[in-house]
């Protein structure tokens, strides 16, 4: 701490030099592969013509954004995207945490390990494959509806009925990803100081109390970071999944920004429009992340990054 009292910025920098060197390689790579290409963002304000190149294409200002927002369907599409994505973010955080806690209670190591390995499997199947399987499973004569039939419930058109379609999207996404997402919470659980449990035990606290007072607080930093970072996906509702499952019957409830851009792209292959939409999504995510960073820092006195 004596360095600060001397007040010399330069010597502070020299003392910190090793720290800068630890970070520098990553920064250099980011500059080359992420920041340099960001020059391409100007495409969003141009009517890009290959013949004229990046610097001579005509400027159109906010035309592409106007097109996105004045499009008759755009409100619906943006709302769908937001709704589906945020439900997924919440479900994909809450359920893996719950699952990690339940798994944490298991003492039988073989069982614990096998369950964990098995729930991790669906992550490795692509939506093209799962799309085909789900179409069969959820059809009117499929397994899901047969099961409902035994319970005396009339069959549900999961993929053809708007509200059920959203439900299906979220449930199937959770089912595919929760096992994989659980891993990070399990890793965090290993960091919980075991002596805290022992102390609580002596105080006579039950398992539920221990979970509430020891385990969850220990997880909170990781939860906050993951929630915040996943805000970056607030307008990514999962193109691959929806593209492989949607159909005209559920356009109203299931069409999202990415599928919309895909269809427009098929018609005119415009990179400018795609860039503009990408920029819009980035700005929204950025605002949300800044807000949640500030909230955590100001009110929770907690640094996310």
């Amino acid at each position: 701490m004596s360095v600060r009292t001397e007040g010399k910025k330069q010597s502070r920098f020299i003392k910190d030099l090793p720290i800068h060197l630890f970070i520098l390689p990553s920064i250099i790579l980011l500059l080359i592969f992420n920041y340099m290409p960001m020059a391409g963002i100007i495409l969003a304000f141009q009517d890009y013509k290959p013949r004229l190149g990046l610097f001579h294409s005509p400027w159109v200002g906010l035309e592409h954004f106007r097109y996105l927002f004045t499009y008759p369907d755009s409100k619906q599409v943006i709302w769908n995207t937001f709704l589906i994505a945020s439900l997924k973010i919440v479900a994909n955080t809450v359920i893996p945490i719950g699952f990690a806690l339940l798994l944490n209670e298991i003492r039988l190591l073989v069982f614990k390990r096998s369950v964990q390995t098995l729930v991790y499997l669906p992550h490795f199947l692509s939506w093209v494959i799962l799309g085909g399987i789900l179409t069969d499973l959820l059809s009117n004569k499929g397994l899901a509806n047969q099961a409902l039939g035994w319970l005396g419930i009339p069959s549900i058109y999961f993929l053809g009925d708007g509200d059920w379609f959203r439900f299906t999207l979220i449930v199937s996404d959770v089912w595919k990803e929760f096992g994989f997402s659980t891993i990070v919470y399990l890793a965090a659980l290993t960091g919980v100081n075991q002596s805290l449990y022992e102390a609580a035990e002596i105080d006579g606290a039950g398992r539920w109390k221990q979970t509430l007072n020891i385990t969850l607080p220990a997880l909170i930093p990781v939860i906050v970071v993951i929630m915040t970072l996943s805000l970056g996906n607030i307008l990514n509702a999962g193109f691959d999944q929806i593209f492989n499952l949607y159909n005209p019957l559920v356009y109203r409830e299931g069409d999202i920004i990415d599928t919309f851009v895909y269809r427009v792209g098929l018609m005119n292959g415009s990179f400018s429009f795609a860039t503009a939409v990408g920029l819009f999504k980035s700005v929204v995510s950025f605002i949300l992340i800044v807000v949640s960073y500030t909230i955590a820092y100001r009110w929770g006195n907690y640094r996310i990054f």
Partner: peptide, 19 residues
């Protein structure tokens, strides 16, 4: 600087050009 790259990107064309 690091988090920013998670959100913003220049799209396909410029990234392709860099590579």
């Amino acid at each position: 600087i690091i988090v920013f790259t998670m959100l913003f990107n220049g799209g396909l064309i410029p990234s392709y050009m860099v590579v």
